[in-house]
Design a protein around this nucleic acid. Structure first.
Lengths: 348, 348
DNA sequence: TCGGTACGAGAAAGCGCTCTCACGAGGAAA
DNA sequence: TTTCCTCGTGAGAGCGCTTTCTCGTACCGA
């Protein structure tokens, strides 16, 4: 490029491009927005003028009239935590959120839609609501897993297009994308039984999350259906440390455990450490099945056998559903449930 | 609140608030923007009208005239990686980026400025540049650590206020915030020598990063100044796996190593695993000092002795410097260098 | 009583863009 | 030739807000 875009000060406006091209502002607008009814020669001239002036449309002006911002928010809501450094660190360290972001970005990018990531806790909801109402974004991908979280309802009442990351605890006429949690737990139980484990236990996620409840219920019900009694349960917190502590407690209270279903890979990593620290071999003495199939599963030694949920695809689907809702706001909510699969590695 | 904000359809406009309050649009604007020259009674009336109508200013209209968006971009530039799922997963799994985000958010939030997080690779720079030129944001926090990364220069030439996360490789009239990398390496070397280690080695970061070079140079020069010869070096990649592989290689080639300086905590975690897998005790056989003092340092066994860089404060400072530049664009670039400190735990 | 001074509020001009509508030219049909 | 479309372009209104400029009112001192 030999010509250099104007810079530093103000960007050129559409009027200046129009003048440079010797056409009207309307024609420039048509060229930029790909309207078909522009003569090829004129289109060419305009495009050259755009390149020469270094013109870039002003988004504020554009979205003032189109009422579109071409961006959507990814709201990560964790109602319990204080909004502080460790909260953000947890979010930005948990592979789950990375996968969500990756999946959503991948789906949005071909449509030139930007993702604005907004972590939030309960003290902060009004900020988020205000942000959404101000028209910064055209829609919301809402990651919310706690059943008492008021945000899904609040966002829904806002009337802004939204898709939630999990089945809402209370019935809500909102689109969501989820994985069949109970089926995942069934697969884990089935696998542990199949490899001969008989004294099973589980480390659940926080039980105020529907997903944790479903995984726990699914695990229990599968075993109950096979005539096995109740199993020891410890409630974890989806962190590495929490998994370690929970496993320690489980093994000290029930030293004869030979199979462990841990409701997340991150917790499994900690649990694996605890089990091995206590002198048990994995999987021979204690078999461990995780949940997620995140990058953490490959950070473990031995490598983690786990239930894969296709988080990236789920996030991409959330984005697709959201874009459909933005395009046609009248439609009824649409929900998609994905199937988990068993990924066998070394730990079970 | 007994009155309910209008919702679902369009938000109310300022005109409607003005009518409800029986004043002009200009007065409503003044009330919203806290102009002092409004009569207290009228202000009161207007505020009530705002509450009753559930009015929220339209950001597009506002920023069209003010030329401010009240948000800044956090651009995370990793030129080498393909922009795919694993790239995003790495970014969202590395505690470093979590700390950056936490620090920046914390500093920006009191000023009601939003953070738009934009991960990018080299195939993607033009997207980012376009995004910035479109006026989505008032300024940029640029996380860029590779010396051949063209983005800092490109952003600089855009003329948009920017602060970079590290000393630029090539001289550039741009504000940056950094830590004294060489000093950090000195502290690590000093500590290893002080505890009696004599056969040192180091796992560096990618050597196309100035920060990695500085840490390596600092480590070497400290030892050279104490009359110690050259030490074995393996170049790592700032991942857990990379750290593990590097440590394995180092120990197989130099079995007598008794002190290891690893240029990041994440790599240290892997290195610790490798060292122990190979039957060495930490710190007695091999002492390990990391770099960062991130959450990973506490995920290690034994707990990691490391060089702390105050990433959150650094990010907060970046945000402060950026806001100052946005407020007064004419000023000369300003740079801040933080001091690292040694945090002694168990691994050395 | 009157002129001067503050001060608070309204009128109106845009910010840069999209999009409807009107219009002119050229070609097809009559 | 005239009439009627069709197609491509331009004129202009208006999106919702901020901000300047103007003006009306109230209060002061002379």
């Amino acid at each position: 490029m030999t010509t250099r875009p104007a810079r530093g000060g103000h960007n050129p406006t559409m009027d200046q491009v129009a003048e440079a091209a010797g056409v009207s502002r309307a024609t420039v607008s048509r060229v930029i927005n790909g309207a078909p009814s522009v003569d090829a020669k004129i289109r060419e001239i305009v495009q050259r003028a755009i390149a020469e002036t270094g013109y870039v449309p002003n988004v504020a002006a554009r979205s003032l009239v189109t009422r579109k911002s071409n961006s959507v928010a990814l709201v990560i809501s964790e109602p319990d935590r204080p909004f502080d450094s460790s909260f953000l660190n947890r979010i930005f360290t948990d592979p789950y959120f990375g996968r969500i972001t990756a999946g959503a970005t991948g789906a949005l990018r071909p449509h030139d839609i930007h993702l604005v990531i907004i972590p939030t806790d309960s003290t902060d909801h009004h900020h988020v609501i205000r942000y959404l109402r101000q028209g910064h974004v055209d829609g919301v991908l809402l990651i919310s897993s706690h059943e008492q979280d008021p945000l899904p309802r609040q966002v829904h009442e806002l009337g802004i297009p939204a898709v939630v990351s999990a089945r809402p605890a209370a019935p809500l006429a909102v689109s969501f994308v989820d994985v069949d949690q109970r089926l995942g737990a069934h697969l884990a139980a089935e696998h542990l039984l199949a490899r001969g484990c008989r004294r099973l236990a589980t480390i659940s996620g926080p039980l105020d999350m529907p997903s944790s409840q479903d995984r726990l219920d699914g695990f229990r019900s599968y075993l109950a259906n096979r005539g096995m009694g109740d199993v020891p349960v410890v409630e974890g917190d989806f962190t590495r440390h929490g998994g370690e502590a929970s496993a320690r407690r489980l093994l000290s209270e029930h030293p004869d455990i030979d199979g462990l279903f841990v409701a997340s890979d991150l917790m499994s990593e900690g649990a694996l450490r605890a089990v091995q620290d206590l002198g048990r071999r994995v999987p021979d003495d204690v078999a461990v099945v995780g949940f997620d199939d995140s990058s953490a599963a490959l950070d473990c030694r031995p490598l983690l056998t786990t239930i894969r949920q296709p988080v990236e695809e789920m996030a991409a689907e959330m984005a697709e559903v959201l874009m459909a809702r933005i395009a046609a706001p009248g439609r009824l909510p649409r929900s998609v449930v994905f199937q988990p699969t068993l990924v066998i590695r070394e730990s079970a």
